[in-house]
Computed example of a mutant assay.
Amino acid sequence: MESWYLLYCKRGQLSRAQKHLKWQAVNCFSPIITLEKIVRGKRIAVSEPLFPNYLFVLFDPERIHTTTLSATRGVSDFVRFGALPATIPYRVIEELQIHVGETCVDPQTPQPGDTVLIVNGVFEGLRAIYTEPDGETRSMLLLNLLHKQVSQSLDNRQFQKV
């Protein structure tokens, strides 16, 4: 009977495994999300797998043997509970497919109102409140200097979320 299973793929070979499994007429699913984060000081959106190195596959073990899939290029092995490969309920896959493509924010990326610590520059060691992005590589922060709130634009590499 056809069921969903979970494969663990070799590091960096998820797309290779997916391509070879499709040649074997195996339905594959790897949920991709768009993640907003700061990379090298720039706030960007990147698409990446929700579960790196894991691939959901739909097949009938009586038609295609599990060792055939385990021997596929890029695949390491099945995720197992005991000796048998773990089956994934259809409901879980349906729920994941509904949320594919949603944009999320990296927990380390500051949002308006978050407290940040300035890690270098003139204000090093001070805490501030993140207010908004100021272009691609800078952000506006609210500093408390001499009991007065001051708005200051700083490079994204000069602070980190607390």
Rank of each mutant, 00 (worst) to 15 (best):
155 D>Q: 13
151 S>H: 02
150 V>M: 11
146 L>F: 05
110 P>Y: 02
111 Q>H: 07
128 A>W: 01
93 I>S: 05
160 Q>G: 01
161 K>W: 06
107 P>Y: 00
57 V>K: 02
129 I>D: 01
77 D>T: 14
132 E>R: 15
152 Q>G: 00
65 H>Q: 12
32 I>N: 08
102 E>Q: 08
15 S>V: 05
109 T>D: 00
124 E>V: 12
79 V>K: 07
27 N>F: 14
144 N>A: 15
66 T>D: 05
42 K>G: 09
75 V>M: 02
5 Y>E: 08
48 E>S: 11
86 A>V: 08
118 I>T: 02
90 Y>V: 15
152 Q>D: 04
85 P>L: 05
63 R>D: 02
108 Q>L: 14
84 L>V: 08
130 Y>H: 01
126 L>H: 09
132 E>D: 07
152 Q>R: 06
76 S>C: 10
153 S>T: 15
74 G>F: 09
75 V>P: 00
12 G>F: 11
71 A>W: 08
140 M>V: 14
126 L>W: 11
89 P>F: 01
30 S>I: 08
155 D>Y: 09
101 G>L: 06
144 N>W: 12
7 L>I: 10
94 E>G: 05
12 G>Y: 12
122 V>C: 00
7 L>W: 04
24 Q>N: 05
11 R>Q: 09
100 V>W: 01
18 Q>E: 14
93 I>L: 09
135 G>M: 03
127 R>F: 12
151 S>R: 15
54 Y>C: 10
111 Q>T: 06
41 G>H: 05
121 G>E: 03
140 M>K: 13
45 A>S: 12
87 T>E: 06
4 W>K: 03
135 G>Q: 08
125 G>T: 09
148 K>F: 07
145 L>T: 02
29 F>V: 00
146 L>T: 06
110 P>L: 09
52 P>L: 10
159 F>G: 00
94 E>A: 11
95 E>C: 08
73 R>A: 14
139 S>N: 03
64 I>P: 03
16 R>A: 15
132 E>L: 04
15 S>R: 12
114 D>H: 01
161 K>N: 10
61 P>V: 04
122 V>T: 14
34 T>F: 11
6 L>R: 01
161 K>H: 08
134 D>W: 01
108 Q>C: 12
114 D>E: 11
119 V>Q: 09
39 V>S: 04
38 I>W: 01
128 A>V: 06
154 L>T: 00
99 H>M: 01
161 K>G: 06
118 I>D: 01
8 Y>G: 02
158 Q>H: 08
128 A>L: 05
119 V>H: 00
39 V>L: 14
78 F>H: 11
105 V>R: 03
114 D>C: 04
82 G>I: 07
44 I>P: 00
136 E>F: 07
76 S>A: 13
161 K>Q: 05
29 F>R: 02
101 G>R: 13
157 R>C: 07
90 Y>N: 14
155 D>V: 10
154 L>G: 04
143 L>A: 12
112 P>S: 13
125 G>W: 14
134 D>P: 00
120 N>Y: 13
152 Q>P: 00
17 A>L: 03
5 Y>R: 07
72 T>V: 14
58 L>Y: 13
153 S>C: 12
38 I>V: 15
115 T>Y: 10
29 F>K: 04
162 V>F: 08
45 A>H: 13
17 A>S: 03
79 V>I: 15
130 Y>A: 10
63 R>S: 11
100 V>Y: 01
79 V>W: 10
91 R>F: 04
10 K>Q: 02
1 M>R: 05
152 Q>Y: 12
52 P>A: 11
8 Y>F: 12
53 N>W: 00
